[in-house]
Structures are given as structure tokens and as C-alpha cells.
Write a protein that binds this DNA or RNA. Structure first.
Lengths: 375, 375
DNA sequence: TTGTATGCGTTATCAT
DNA sequence: ATGATAACGCATACAA
């Protein structure tokens, strides 16, 4: 009983209840695939096949259908398509909420740009979720998959201690970690360990023997890896792991200031300091200034991240540039490959970092030195 | 012919074609509303009503149904719900793509945070779209509504010359402009005009008579309004609109440098400069330094935006703080109100700006002065 | 190659 | 108060 094709102007009409036309107010009267079928004289399926570029459709048919589509300005409904295809073309990007000023952090902004560019180039859309207490309480990390039908998830800069990450990864859904590292899952990270080691070689080459370290949170991958890189650098340069040369902060300027205070108050204070990120480097330099220690003359300071401030601060910061844009792009590509069913899985990728030499380490002209890659 | 309720374990079974069970691999076997109906012994409709908190449902039924929902961890499918409800609970946030480093700009990052917080508090999700050439070519601005069924759109910092904005607004879809201004539509902006005037009063109070202005792009609302505020400020302070005191840039540091060069090369150069944004203020100060003009002693400089750099730059920048977080929140609220059918429409809202006095204008301690509100 | 029938998971209408 | 069923708009085995 064909009840589809030749009903001139109405939607599929039920056998009996012709009395109450179910059509709701067609406010913006957008067309459906039915309209195209009717107008073009083909069936819905044919239109659908044309829409999806199926090669089985005869060219002449294809053209006729497309002509109608163009003419009436038909656009397929994503929701309906997702429902039928069971694939939403939507990716969630989950970012930690650090204060309420998340997006201003270079680290995240750069990765977001890379992610966004790569996703939209492939026709994917992204929804952004910030990890708040509510996010966790509502179990949003899994609801995004189940309720919202997202195809995949990018987890940016998560902590080793974030439990929800484990839940996502073990749930069987597709996810990639951006700049954090866990065994058994796909991760794309900047080569912080190798980069940190290159910082140490740089300072060592300048003649420094006592190089201090202001660490960050070792629950973060960057914190941990830069810490390891510091130690590896000492080894490579043949420097002893002297005591009293390491203090930890929490990545904030304030914590960098306080760590520096401890470091610089010692009888045998370091002549150079590698701070785990730029903000702590800034704190360190401010502390040195307050203590009457000149940077870079009496103390060389190197940061990491290469935030915008780094090149405007006085002295301009020598720092380890982390190519977060590239990391974002690559991570997204890994995710999309998996969704497309190509490539390996899981996969680990490392993007090289670069040492940007400015003034705070005693050089006066800017230059770049490639960081070491871990192969 | 009831074919729904008492089919123990299978989906709706067609009269004949029982041979080929259409069910595809239920990979992650998530439950549907049918499962809940079956398990609880009620109909799909009842479950749906329970799910949506309909008051007509008897409390005992409500409890029984919820018990099952909790037990099996059922979560409704957004796509199906959106399709049926014709409302997606998704909002698009459209931001201009300035270089590839969009998110690093304070202006946008702050507004995004406000938008994100407000949306997620109301159960809305946001998808972020950057305006690129492709965005425009594909007609994405309207496709988002038609294809993706977004409920509303927030347009952040658009230019007066952006044509797609007009198309969105005239299309009948719901949209709010964030920090830009057009007649006949809903806008939420920072009070840049009043704020700029307060900058002028500040400089005038410091004794400056010749106050220069480095304008931005007057195709932007902030550019235009700060320009107007500059002139209004001159008037309020009884200063003449002298010639040769105004130059324009494009908001970049470089353009600020060049504008300053012209301004400061004149025989009768200004003793103070109000730059339309912080980056141009930085360029101006760098230029002054290169010309041997001391800031703030020989030249007072005030910027606008209060980007993170402002308090780290030397000298620390006196600047007009623009509460973009609040602007983002408010704009989102306006949008959601409209979607909920409450409040007026269209609506114009102005958020006060604040003058943050630091070192570049000659003061040594930080302080805040409320900007003037336009009523 | 094209058409038919049905499914995707939910909401909304109407009848009971 | 609850149940049955038709939308919602598209995709897709399978038949023709």
C-alpha cells in the first residue's frame, strides 16, 4: 500500500484521520526530503542517495534532484540525520575550568584553535564543556555520549588525578587526550621532557653549574615531564643533583614568587632557574628583583609555555615554546581517523617543543633552537 | 490494533517481516524509552510524561518509573528529543577569527566564559563557530539554524560591515549581538562611550590639555564608541577639538606604534594619549621610548580592554576595563529569555566599564574609578 | 537503478 | 491519569 509518493501537497496522510492535519505551524516552512522527492518526481530514497553522493544514482537523475534542491534551498536536518545515521558529527571538547578565565590561558586557547580548525575542515562541529563541579556531579562526561550522541571526545590538559577521565576511557567511547598522558589510550602531547632537557643544555652552555628548578603540579603531565626533563638535563650535562635546588609551586605567579624566595635565600643559591611555566618564571623574576638580584646578570631565568606575556615582560622571557596549536590539530586528526576507521588505535604522538631564547637567560637577541625529540 | 505494549523483549514488531530482525548491533546497548516502558509496565507516553515532569502523572506512577530509570541508568537521546520537540537546546556562538589565535584574546575569552557558564546553568549546550571564509561561503550562519536546528545564536564582536549579521537578524531566527550595536536587534554592550569619557576626565584631572587619541577600526562598535567617547570627553572637560591629535590604527601593536609616531612627531605634540585598546597603547609606549619620550613623565598613556598584559607591562597600563564576562552572561540571559518567551524583544543593555588606574598615566598605585553609565 | 517499507527514539495528540 | 499511535526527517536493507 504505497502511501508516500503522489500526495501532492501534504505530508504522509494517515488512512483515516484526515480530519486533523497534524502538521504544526510551519513557521519558517523549511523543506524536507519529502518535498524534494515530490518536486523532483523521485522517491525519498533516491533523493537521499543523491544527497549522500551514492555512485549508484544515474547522472541525469542526480542533476534533476540537485536542481530542485538548489532551487528551493533545501537543507537536510542534522537531528534527523544523526538519529537515523546514529552518528552526530559532533565532538565534545572538555577543558578544565581554571578560575573563570579559562579561555585566556594560552595553553588552552591555542589548542582550541587547532581543534576547531581541524574539526570544521572535516565537517564536524564541536561543543565545548568546561569541567565544573556540576559537570562531574551530573556525570556529564558520559551523558555527552549517551544523551547527546557525540561521536568522540577530546580531553584537554586533564590531571592524572581526574577520575572522570578514566571512566570515559574505560567506557569504550572514542576519546583522545590532548597534552596529557595515560597508558593504554590515545594521547598527543608536546615533548616537554625533551624540551626541558634542552633548556638545561642551554643554561649549561651558558656556564651555569647550579641550576635550580621551580616545579609545577606533578599531577599534570607537563609538570611531571618537565620535572623529569630537568633531571635528565642535569644528567646529560654532567651536573650533580644537588639538594636545595628544587621547589614546587602550582603554576601561579604567586607560587613562583614564593618558591623563588626559598631558592634564592639559600647560602649557596642557584645562578640559574628553570621555572615549570612562564607565570612562575615571572614570579621568580619579580622575587629576584625584590631581593636585589639582577636578571639575567645575577640570575638566569627560563620559563615554559611561551605565553603572549613572555615577549612583553621585562626582561623578555626565554622560554620553552609549546606548540599547542599543532598538538590540538594532531589530536583531532587522531580522533577523526579513529572515527573514520583508519589508522591504528590507540596511538601516542609527541610534538616537538622549541626553546625560544630571549633576554631573561642572558641573551640579547631572539632565536630559536629545536628541542630534542623523544623517539 | 495495539502492537506496542506486550511484546516482551523486542522492539515494535512489524506484522509480517518477522524474518529479518532489523535491529542493528546494539553495541553499547543503551536503553530507550521503550525499555523503560516495558520494564515499568507503563506506556511510552507515560514514561515520557514522567521524564518531562508533567503534573498530570500520579505520584506513585512517577516513583515507579523513576525507579526503573535510575536502576538501568536510562538517558534520553538528545537527537530524538530534539527532532520530536523541534528544539535542540543548542546555541551557536559565532566569533570572528582573528589570526588563528582567536581564543587568546582577552576580549573573546572572557565573553566565552560568561556565555558558557550561563548556558550550561540552564541546560543548554553551545557549539562554537569561527567566522572564516569557509564559514561565509557555506552560508553557515543560516545553515546552523536550518540544518543543525540551533535554537539561538550569539554573535560576538561583529563588525558593522559584516553582511552575514544582517542576514541572520532579518531571517527571523533568534540572535543577540555581544558587544556590538545595531538598530532593531538585541544587543548587549559594554559602556565604551561613557568609559572613554571617563578616561578623558581622568587625564584632564591630571592637568593634561592636549590629549591625543589613537583610534581603532570604526567598523567595530568598540572602536566607534570609544571614538565618540573621546570627543564627548573633550567637550565635558572644556577642551578644544584640536587638529592633529587623532590617528587611527587597526588594534594591533604595530599600528599603535605607527600612529604614535605620527602623533608624537608633531611640533605641538600631545602630553597624553588615549589608545583605543591596550595593544595599541603598548605600541604607543614602545614608540615613545624609541623617541626618547618618558612614560608617564613626559607622556601619559591610557589603553582600553584591561588585557592580562596590562598589569605586567612596564609601565603598568592604566586602562579602561571592559567587563566582558558580565557582557557574555547578560547577552546569554537575554537570548534564553527570548527562547523561553519571557521579557521584551528586542532589548538593548549596557554594562558599565571601569577605569583601572595604574602607572602609565602617572599614578603609582592601582585604583578603580567607576565609569559613567549611559542611561 | 529506483522504490518500498521500516527503523532511529522521542514527543504530542487524541481517545479512553 | 494513562494508553495507543502518528508525527519528527532521514537512512537503508531489500525487493523489484
Amino acid at each position: 500500500m504505497p502511501r508516500d509518493s503522489f500526495e501532492p501537497s501534504s505530508r504522509r496522510t494517515p488512512a483515516v484521520a484526515r480530519l486533523s492535519p497534524r502538521r504544526r505551524v510551519p513557521e519558517a516552512t523549511s523543506h524536507t526530503i519529502r518535498d524534494i522527492a515530490r518536486l523532483s518526481g523521485f522517491s525519498r530514497s533516491t533523493v537521499s542517495l543523491v544527497l549522500n553522493g551514492d555512485p549508484r544514482i544515474k547522472p541525469s537523475t542526480r542533476q534533476k534532484v540537485w536542481a530542485v534542491i538548489q532551487k528551493v534551498g533545501y537543507e537536510p536536518n542534522c537531528m534527523a540525520r544523526s538519529l537515523a545515521r546514529r552518528r552526530s558529527m559532533i565532538t565534545a571538547v572538555v577543558v578544565p575550568k581554571i578560575s573563570s578565565h579559562l579561555f585566556s590561558d594560552y595553553y588552552f586557547s591555542e589548542s582550541m584553535s587547532g581543534i576547531s580548525d581541524t574539526l570544521s575542515a572535516k565537517g564536524y562541529r564541536m561543543i565545548i564543556e568546561m569541567v565544573t563541579d556540576n559537570f562531574l556531579k551530573d556525570g556529564m562526561h558520559l551523558r555527552l555520549f549517551r544523551e547527546c550522541q557525540i561521536d568522540g571526545m577530546l580531553l584537554v590538559g586533564t590531571l592524572d588525578t581526574d577520575e572522570y577521565v578514566g571512566e570515559v576511557l574505560s567506557s569504550g567511547y572514542t576519546a583522545v587526550l590532548v597534552n596529557s598522558w595515560r597508558p593504554g589510550c590515545s594521547c598527543v602531547v608536546a615533548d616537554n621532557m625533551g624540551g626541558a632537557a634542552s633548556v638545561m643544555r642551554h643554561l649549561s652552555a651558558l656556564g651555569h653549574k647550579r641550576i635550580g628548578f621551580i616545579g609545577g603540579l606533578n599531577s599534570t603531565t607537563v609538570g611531571l615531564q618537565r620535572d623529569e626533563g630537568y633531571r635528565r638535563g642535569l644528567l646529560e650535562c654532567g651536573l650533580p643533583e644537588a639538594t636545595g635546588l628544587v621547589e614546587y609551586g602550582d603554576f601561579s605567579e604567586q607560587s613562583g614568587y614564593e618558591a623563588a624566595k626559598k631558592l634564592l635565600s639559600k647560602k649557596n643559591r642557584p645562578t640559574a632557574v628553570f621555572a615549570c611555566n612562564d607565570m612562575m618564571a615571572v614570579g621568580c623574576i619579580n622575587c629576584a628583583r625584590d631581593m636585589g638580584i639582577a636578571v639575567p646578570d645575577d640570575l638566569a631565568v627560563v620559563g615554559a609555555d611561551d605565553i603572549a606575556l613572555a615577549s612583553y615582560f621585562q626582561p623578555r622571557l626565554t622560554t620553552l615554546h609549546q606548540p599547542m596549536y599543532e598538538v590540538g590539530c594532531l589530536a583531532t586528526q587522531v580522533l577523526l581517523d579513529k572515527l573514520a576507521g583508519v589508522g591504528e588505535w590507540p596511538v601516542k604522538k609527541v610534538v616537538l617543543t622549541q626553546l625560544v631564547i630571549r633576554d631573561s637567560s642572558g641573551f640579547s637577541r631572539e632565536g630559536r633552537v629545536s628541542g630534542a625529540a623523544r623517539k
